[in-house]
Each structure stands twice: as structure tokens, then as C-alpha cells.
Amino acid sequence: MNDPKVVRGSNMIASIKVSGTYYPVFCAKSCSFEMTNEIINRTGVNDGLFTKRRIRRTEWSGSASGVLVTNNDGNRYSPFYLMQESVRRSTMEWQFEFTNLDGDIRTIEGEALIQNLPISGDVQSFVQCTVNIIGTGAFTMDESPSSPTADENVDSDYWVTIAGGTSIQGLSVYGKSLQGKEILAIAREGTVYDPITTGSPSNRTALFNSALGRITFDSNIPFNPGETVWAMWKD
């Protein structure tokens, strides 16, 4: 495969945090991470013949397996260390690191408990060990880009108002129009307003009409001389 963004199995590493540093767990040959959503029904009386569902809780788990080693060093930690921590009922910080062929790294980190730790010895081979963990609490992922962002033409500008008026429409100071746009944020003299698209604006709400490209404020709070209205929108 020529795609440089793929991750080979050898570049997925399970590590535990000890004294602030992550160390790979023993001489692992394979590891896994799994996230599971609990799906529950939410079918209502008006939902017809098909079942509707939603996600309730999310949980995660992982495992690592490989050859047993007896010592801890800068490159790995022994299953015996994990066993000690397990008996102590300790929560440990785990990290799953994924490195693609370009060298980009993404990590998943979270606290987990050791559920079981089987060790097996074969007279013809090395002693094999597996550690299975279950996450406690949320995992965190780093925030590096996951995919290119489509250009939504997010833009912003401001309008000079007419004293006594309560709405703006037409072109902004830099010649932009709100017609046909989706509003993201509205501010009047630096105060951010709650955008609404139906009903009547009152107090700190502002009514946006996309078809007309118009923002209307509470009629009881007309513009003062020199007021400006700022908006952020996208296509």
C-alpha cells in the first residue's frame, strides 16, 4: 500500500505511564483498543414501524500481548509490575500511540484498570502474556488534523447602523451580504447576541432572515448613533 497515512501494526504501541513517562508494556507483539457505545432504544409512539435508537454510555477497553520479560527498563515494563499494580487496585494511565508511514502520531490516552492478566508457558516457545484493561472515565485523543477541512467560506464583517433603526440589511462595510448564508454569531457593539431564525427578537436575541440577509434587533432597543453590528456566517 502506497498511502503514507496508513498505520502498520508495528507502529501501534501500548504504553503505561510511570513517574510521568510512558513506557511500552513488556515485549508486546500485538495490542488492541476498542471503544463501545451502549445503544438504547428511543422509539416513541409516533415513530412508525421502525426502531429508533440513541447512544447512552461510551466505554473503552484494550489489550496487549507478547513475550514475558522479568525486568523493567527504559524500553518496557514487565507484566509483574502490572500484576503488582493490579493487586493494589491501582488505576493506571495508558496510552495507545499510532504512527503512520509519514511519521504523524496520534494518541489515545486514558485511565484504566487491569481486568485480567493471563500468562502461559509452552515448553517449545517463550512464555506468552496478555493484559486486558478496561477504561475508567473518558479517554482523550490528541487534536491533530484527522482529515482535510472542506472550505465552508466562513466569513465575518460589520455594518454601520442608522440611529433609531433596529435592523441591518444589504452590504457590509467591506461589501459582503448575508443573503442565503447561515449565521454563526451576531454581536452589537461588542456584545454577543443569541441568533434566532423565528419569532420576535427581544433583549439580547437577534432575528436573522437568510432570504433577506437581514438581522433585526429588539424594537425597544433602537440603535444609538455610531453603533455597529458584527456578524459571522458561512455558506
Binding site: 447512544i55 485523543m141 487534536e143 454563526l184 454569531a185 454581536a187 456584545t191 454577543v192 447576541y193 439580547r204 459571522m232
Partner: peptide
């Protein structure tokens, strides 16, 4: 809000104040 998980915050305003 689960919809806000792993997002980039561009603007947060509380009662009009950014």
C-alpha cells in the same frame, strides 16, 4: 454536550461577553 467533544472552539460568549 456530546456534540462539542473533540471540536475546536472558535467563539464562546456568556451572556454577550466573549
Amino acid at each position: 454536550d456530546a456534540n462539542l467533544a473533540y471540536c475546536k472552539m472558535l467563539l464562546v460568549a456568556r451572556s454577550g461577553v466573549e
